[in-house]
Design a protein around this nucleic acid. Structure first.
Lengths: 325, 325
DNA sequence: ATGAAAGCGCTAACAT
DNA sequence: ATGTTAGCGCTTTCAT
């Protein structure tokens, strides 16, 4: 591997000049630039990123922590983030936390040790103070953390749209189905928007928490429905959960979700495959925008503490083909 | 940030001793180890990865190139790879190629410039010689490249299983639906296994290439079926393609895929959501195993040039509920 | 068992 | 406009 010294010798200049040419080309004589470029080409020279990072204290790497890469929403965020990073000349280092606090903190330490220039967090389960103590630019996606800039979709409006859609489909008493989630998720705005809209329409709704990763999930839902026959539609907290429950109820011979109107959330491809109405988050925009904010922060500029992007309702068969009279 | 020098001073030893303690602890006096550990703790010391990498020429980073992170199969591979890397003390740098040769080569150069210790390639569209010329440990996943070790599933058996499954479901003339793909994909073994099994059963099959990323995909399939009324079942080249075509045919009012037996490939969650029989690749095993092979290669050990892992058939409604008599 | 010192490849004053 | 040089934080001979 050719070094800057080799290039300097071959071009008949000093290493400083070569270095300058790479960092502030306009300050070196055009003719010299040519010579150096020629030498670089001939030697197939690439600057050593590590050496440069050691010197400049900037690695050019962004860290991303997600619960799991293979969860549809996060995979798409990762794609968008990778694109944006690349475009700005940064690389992406990905870690997953499994939603475990210990693992999340380990990953944070790992990224910090690897000298990332900044971090993007989609998986907040740890103590917010730990993040603030890091003294590193951080932006949260789809999460809100104290004193840390975040990019989320408009969950309140999303919830409201979902309610409107169910009402339009004829529902009088929809059921909100959620994961058992901790209190700080943006989910709360989503539910608030939903409930407010339902109340304004003089209707009522119920709510149930189901852990779809347990095998008895479908049965729990069925039990709930038996006890609450007034339920005539569903607001599912995420396409993936909706898909899982659909599969599980089918396996149990309880095709509940095929009969009543359903509105889901996220806007993954999955929802289209299942012909399911969903409130779509602008996932790619969120990822891209989060990177832009993070890079601004890395450069020391002020950035908005909260950025909210628009959602939209994608209407499909699950709210247009099913009657529930 | 505390440096090794700070630790050395505080512990009353030289930097060399501190360094030794980190790399070969058994060679330094236990009592000294204690002192150093104490100093490290007090200073909250973490070694600088960049400085270490500069010196040792090993970054501790593995590069992964996939077409897109958000394609179900690759997301799961990425998850498995990240897990395995982490377990072995490596970090993961992810890039996506979009299946574009230029971008793929750019990403390769980028990873090389970032001094990754090795690369995992899931997206081979570039010239194999370029990879061999890199002089860097490389392992391919779900792809076979000349002179580069690869980890794939047993595509031939997978194809055979798919054929058996369709035959058992009563098909006499299944249709193979594939993407228009280049010649080097492991797909070929898959189709060979399928066709051989069909032939051995004294049956026949057809094949059609559909680009499901174009809107008229469903119509093309419908046209084909009209011209070939003997088709009575489908072998889909990938769960994602099957899901897309199902959605598209539904949108066109052509519910073809809901009526005839279907066997798909990959074993993504998606297939379960759609109640679709699929030939499941051992995705997590492939990812984990690829990392293990790569790390061996990085250490200079010899590794198998081809590793093939077992597939299995997951039987679901798409081959058990549908009659086609 | 430990210390001294020479770099790894690059950047950034400071000189010229 | 270009050259000289001192590190960045670490590892690693070579001495002791």
């Amino acid at each position: 591997m050719a070094t800057i010294k080799d290039v300097a010798e071959r071009a008949g200049v000093s290493v400083a000049t070569v270095s300058r040419m790479m960092n502030k080309p306009d300050v070196v004589k055009p003719q010299t630039v040519k010579k150096i470029q020629k030498a670089m080409k001939e030697l197939n020279y690439y600057p050593d990123v590590m050496a440069r990072a050691l010197q400049t204290k900037r690695s050019g790497i962004i860290g991303l922590i997600v619960p799991r890469i293979s969860y549809g929403l996060f995979a798409r965020i990762a794609d968008a983030v990778e694109d944006a990073c690349c475009q700005h000349g940064f690389r992406l280092m990905i870690c997953h936390s499994e939603y475990e606090e210990q693992r999340e903190m380990d990953m944070v330490a790992l990224l910090k040790a690897n000298k990332v220039d900044g971090m993007l967090i989609c998986s907040y389960v740890g103590d917010p103070e730990k993040y603030n103590a890091l003294d590193l630019p951080i932006v949260a996606i789809d999460r809100e953390m104290e004193r840390i800039p975040s990019v989320t979709c408009d969950n309140v409006t999303g919830g409201a749209l979902a309610a409107q859609e169910l009402i339009a489909a004829g529902c009088r008493h929809p059921l909100i189905v959620t994961y058992p989630v901790p209190a700080y998720m943006p989910l709360h705005g989503r539910l608030a928007g939903f409930q407010k809209t339902i109340a304004e329409a003089q209707l009522t709704c119920s709510q149930v928490e189901i852990d779809t990763f347990r095998p008895q999930a479908a049965r729990e839902l069925a039990d709930f429905l038996r006890a609450h026959p007034e339920v005539d539609g569903f607001f599912m907290n995420g396409d993936h959960m909706a898909a899982q429950l659909t599969q599980q109820t089918r396996a149990e011979g309880l095709p509940l979700l095929d009969q009543l109107p359903v509105v889901s959330f996220d806007g993954l491809d999955l929802s289209g495959f299942l012909d399911m109405t969903t409130i779509a988050q602008p996932i790619e925009d969120m990822g891209r925008y989060a990177v832009e904010i993070l890079l601004q922060k890395i450069e020391g500029k002020a950035v908005p503490i909260r950025s909210t992007l628009e959602v939209k309702c994608i209407r499909r068969g699950s709210t247009s083909n099913r009657s529930n009279h």
